[in-house]
Structures are given as C-alpha cells and as structure tokens.
Design a protein around this nucleic acid. Structure first.
Length: 205
DNA sequence: CGGATTTGACCAGCGC
DNA sequence: GCGCTGGTCAAATCCG
C-alpha cells in the first residue's frame, strides 16, 4: 500500500522499509540520469545497465550539470502547469520545481495502469526519437501531477515514464493493481550500478 | 451527453 | 537576435 504510493507519488524520501521485493529505490539521486532521450538515450543503459526509477531533482544545485549539456532545455521550465496567457501574471513563483521520477519499463503498452486517472493533454515528436512523447495530467481536481510517456527509438520495447509532482489525493484503485502493473511491464531492478552491466539479462520478469 | 483524446498552434527557454 | 526544440493550450473530434 504505502510503498506503492511511494512509488508514484512521493516526498523524495525513500520509505525506510519496503516490504515489496521489488526494488524501486531511486538510484543515486543527483546522478546524471538522462531520462530524456535526446541523443542520450544511450545514457539510459550505457551508464547503468539497467534501469530504474530515477529521482530527478532538477532543483538541486548540488547535482552536477547534465552531461548532455542540456538535460532538457526546459527541464525545469515545464514545472508550472498554469501558464497564464498574460505575461507577468504570476502569483509570485516563477517556476515551481517538483520532484520528478523517471521510470523505465518494458511494456507493450505505453499507458500503464498505475491506479490514477490520467488525461492526455499533448503529444509531441521529439528529436532523435521516432516515437512521440505523450503528456498526461492527473484528472483529479487540484492534483496537478503530470507524467510523460515515451518510447525509446532505440528499444521500442522500452517505455520511459516520467512522473512530475506528487498526488494530493488517494489512489483511485486498489493496490492489488500493483500486481497488474508487474504483469504489464518488466521493471528493471533498481540496484546500484554495481552489479549491473548488462541490461537485457538481469531484468526480472 | 459527458468526458477523454487528437492535433495544430502558440509560447518560452536555450543554444548558436 | 534568431531559430530550434520542448511543453502546453484549446477547439474539434471521438467514444462509451
């Protein structure tokens, strides 16, 4: 239950005890993760061999600059959902940065049923990727959690899901659903890069 | 009929 | 300063 929630919406604080046998712990936070492909799609597996749940703290000044030069042009830019048509009409916060979590999975379907209800609000073709990136937003009122779903052109079997923000409400479906997720996708174990060098061999299934 | 999806346009940030 | 790219909006459309 809780651990499930921790996965998809969290306070950047890894729960101490996870009863689940699946390791979703974020790898080293701040490590250079290029969830966003670009020409870095290599980085996804080159660096870690497998992947994982990446915790992206785009707010951390301490974290080293993205190796790619620009992890994502608007990596932090897209934070604020409400972009008022009238410039200068901000409440005061220019860009609120939310924790983001990247999820690399192997699945036939792009949309994994994680228990929340999502509404698609955009789709965009990105460079260096044959597959378009889809943008979703949580439909729950007041919950402005967003997520991006994208397939790797390199591995069309791999789907990268990036969650942004935390859910302010309870999950809509029962957590039993979690098992369904596992059946829908193959999650790369999120252990340190220590043991993993080959991604295609170690994913449990 | 209501809600979700599609799709092109618009906008902002960044690099050159 | 300009152009490129990614992210979001919003009207039209689709589907249950």
């Amino acid at each position: 239950m809780e651990n499930y929630h921790m996965l998809f919406g969290t306070t950047t604080q890894p729960s101490s005890s996870t009863s689940s046998s699946y390791n979703f712990m974020p790898t080293s936070a701040g490590s250079s993760l290029h969830v966003h492909d670009h020409d870095d799609r290599r980085g996804l597996q080159a660096g870690h061999g497998g992947s994982f749940l990446a915790e992206l703290s785009n707010k951390d000044a301490a974290s080293p600059p993205p190796v790619a030069g620009h992890g994502e042009s608007s990596a932090g830019g897209a934070a604020e959902a409400d972009r008022s048509p009238v410039p200068g009409k901000r409440k005061g916060e220019k860009k609120e940065r939310r924790p983001r979590y990247a999820f690399q999975t192997r699945s036939e379907v792009d949309i994994l049923d994680d228990g929340y209800r999502w509404r698609k609000y955009g789709q965009k073709a990105v460079k260096n990727n044959r597959f378009p990136r889809s943008y979703y937003r949580c439909t729950h009122q007041g919950c402005n959690v967003k997520k991006q779903v994208q397939r790797l052109s390199r591995d069309e079997a791999v789907v990268v899901t990036t969650y942004e923000g935390t859910h302010t409400h309870a999950i809509e479906k029962s957590n039993d659903n979690f098992e369904h997720i596992l059946t829908q996708m193959h999650i790369y174990t999120a252990l340190g890069s220590s043991n993993f060098s080959s991604s295609h061999n170690n994913m449990f299934h």
